[in-house]
Amino acid sequence: MRLAFSQAKAAVILLVLITAILAWIYPVLSLVPLALLTFLFFFYRDPRRPAPEKESIILAPADGTVTRVASVDCAYVGAGAWQVSIFMSPLSVHVNRSPIAGVVESISHQPGKFLPAMNPEAPLVNEKRSYCIQGQIRVKVIQVAGIMARRTVNWVHKDQEVAQGEKIGMIKLGSCTQVTFPANYKVLVAEGDKVQAGLTIIGEVN
């Protein structure tokens, strides 16, 4: 079973049972759990994506829309690093992937608020999970929870080697994912661009 769908296994089994029972007793009512079941299959979809593995590029860690590109000072990546924020709507694929090949040096969880993902303050004050990945360069991926997405899911562990484009986790019901990478890379996306995790190249070395 694919990692994303495994998160909904219990709910799927329950809805299948309810749908079957209602279909036998009162067929019209069975449409309600059937609709919910269809939504779960759509929400937890996890398409196969062969990532273009190149040390000179940065891949998008999430599906969605680029909402912010900024120069920031990051203790892990360095001063003047690039940070790209990606908004994941409830209709997006919610699997997050590693932007580079490397080793997960640390994973940290920070409790916080649950402001809407589009709120500029959300990445600063909301609950979040951060992944520091060391490869040829250092990158930091941050899963930011939102008003609907109140749970981030982690599929990797400290000191684990990850391939470029490998799945590292997911955020349930959409929110925001940020990636920070060194200043000597050229940003290839702008605010409003649509990106796909593990496929869209968002940065390359100058």
Rank of each mutant, 00 (worst) to 15 (best):
V66D: 01
Q143F: 04
G80I: 10
W82M: 00
M148H: 10
V32T: 12
A60F: 00
V16N: 05
Q136S: 14
V187G: 02
G165M: 04
G78D: 07
I133G: 02
G169Q: 06
P61Q: 09
S175H: 02
V84W: 00
R49Q: 10
A23C: 12
A10T: 14
V125Q: 11
E121C: 09
I86T: 07
I107S: 02
P116E: 06
A51Q: 00
S92A: 15
G146Q: 04
Q178Y: 01
Y44P: 01
A75F: 07
L15T: 05
F5D: 08
V139W: 02
Q178V: 00
R2D: 14
S71H: 10
L14R: 09
A10M: 10
I168Y: 04
S98W: 06
F39C: 11
I107W: 05
Q196I: 05
G174N: 00
D193Q: 03
A70I: 07
S92N: 15
V103G: 02
L34T: 13
L31V: 13
F114A: 05
L188K: 15
L31F: 15
V103K: 14
V162D: 01
V189W: 03
V93N: 12
F5H: 09
E161L: 12
S30P: 03
A163I: 06
L199N: 07
Q136H: 12
L173N: 08
I201S: 09
V104P: 00
T67K: 05
V16T: 12
I13W: 10
A145L: 11
P52C: 03
V179N: 02
N126T: 07
K172W: 08
A8R: 03
R49H: 09
T19D: 04
E121K: 15
S108L: 08
G135F: 06
I100M: 04
L188E: 14
F43V: 14
V195Q: 08
V195R: 08
V103Q: 11
L199D: 11
E204H: 09
R129L: 12
C176S: 10
I18D: 05
A149D: 00
N184E: 14
Q7D: 13
G174E: 01
M118P: 00
S106A: 14
L115Y: 12
L40E: 01
A101V: 08
V66G: 01
L17S: 10
A70L: 07
E204L: 07
K186S: 13
T177Q: 04
L115D: 03
L14I: 12
A11M: 10
A75S: 15
I18L: 14
W82N: 07
Q7P: 00
G78F: 09
A75Y: 04
A149C: 10
S85E: 03
P182A: 09
C74R: 06
H109P: 00
R150S: 04
M118E: 13
G192E: 09
R97V: 04
D193E: 08
